[in-house]
Design a protein around this nucleic acid. Structure first.
Length: 274
DNA sequence: CGGACAACCTGGCGGC
DNA sequence: TGCCGCCAGGTTGTCC
């Protein structure tokens, strides 16, 4: 579930409690969550380093330390937050990595499905060498988007989910973007007209910006670092609304399967032909 | 190239 | 109440 808006919200929420703190040690009850280097080397290398800055690339959280980058990927059910050592002992049963900080606090990585991970790297390219452009950056222009679309014949939905094509869009915001742009998810990427391309480019940015403004979508597992839910889920036009009326035309929202993902769209506003 | 699918995992939920 | 099977979806890798 955590996509660009959710990860961006986590990054923003971690800056105040985490920047300036020193990491003294690492505890884990599920060492597979520590992907690289091996847990012993990981702890030896991270101990004593201060968190200098926190940023985001695609869906990766980057904690810039004195000499390394602590990379965290939340995958579907990951959470990352700072808490007092003895705080919330029972309410989160899925904490698999704890980073001991100074002043009796710890950075916790919680993940019920154990898909997420932490790594220590020098550059994000070490673990994600082929990420596409950031959709909210100035470098993501309509012209560049059009040129890249023309190189692919696969369905537009599958392409939006491809992190090498565009970084940060996941299933929820792909469906919402295609609906706002009035484009059927199965349209071939290289078949979009100039007008459709411009609409989709605009829709992706608006949908992601709205998601950030609403501090992410708490469909089930996602929480902000302060433990509260975001509100983007209250503003979905199509995601998780199958059978309900389209907010534009009243047609029932349909759910199908595209690129092996649940896909929600309005058959009237997003026709496959015409 | 594109698409299908398995693998990584577990909680939540509908059905019985 | 409880058991069963399915669904959720980010990413990688494999196969056709």
């Amino acid at each position: 579930m955590p996509e660009l808006p959710e990860v961006e919200t986590v990054v923003r929420g971690l800056r105040d409690p985490l920047i300036g703190r020193v990491i003294h040690g690492v505890w884990s009850d599920w060492t597979k969550a520590i992907r690289y280097p091996d847990p012993a080397a990981f702890e030896a290398r991270i101990a004593g380093q201060k968190v200098c800055a926190i940023s985001r690339r695609a869906k990766y959280i980057l904690c810039h330390l004195d000499h390394d980058i602590l990379v965290v990927h939340l995958k579907m059910t990951g959470r990352l937050y700072v808490a007092a050592d003895d705080e919330l002992h029972d309410s989160d049963r899925w904490v698999h990595v704890r980073f001991q900080l100074d002043e009796g606090r710890q950075l916790r990585f919680s993940d019920s499905r154990k898909f997420g991970f932490v790594s220590l790297v020098n550059t994000i390219e070490e673990i994600a060498p082929h990420l596409g452009p950031e959709p909210l950056s100035d470098a993501f222009t309509v012209a560049e988007f059009a040129a890249r679309l023309a190189r692919h014949h696969k369905s537009i939905k599958a392409l939006l989910l491809d992190q090498a094509f565009l970084a940060g869009v996941g299933n929820i915001y792909a469906d919402e973007s295609l609906h706002m742009a009035m484009i059927h998810p199965l349209r071939a990427a290289d078949s979009l007209t100039a007008d459709e391309t411009a609409r989709l480019h605009h829709a992706i940015r608006v949908v992601l910006e709205n998601g950030i403004e609403r501090e992410g979508a708490s469909v089930n597992w996602y929480r902000k670092p302060d433990g509260t839910a975001g509100s983007a889920q209250n503003h979905f036009a199509v995601y998780d609304r199958s059978g309900q009326a389209c907010l534009t035309c009243g047609s029932p929202i349909e759910k199908s399967r595209v690129a092996q993902r649940g896909t929600h769209y309005c058959p009237t506003c997003q026709p496959l032909t015409g």
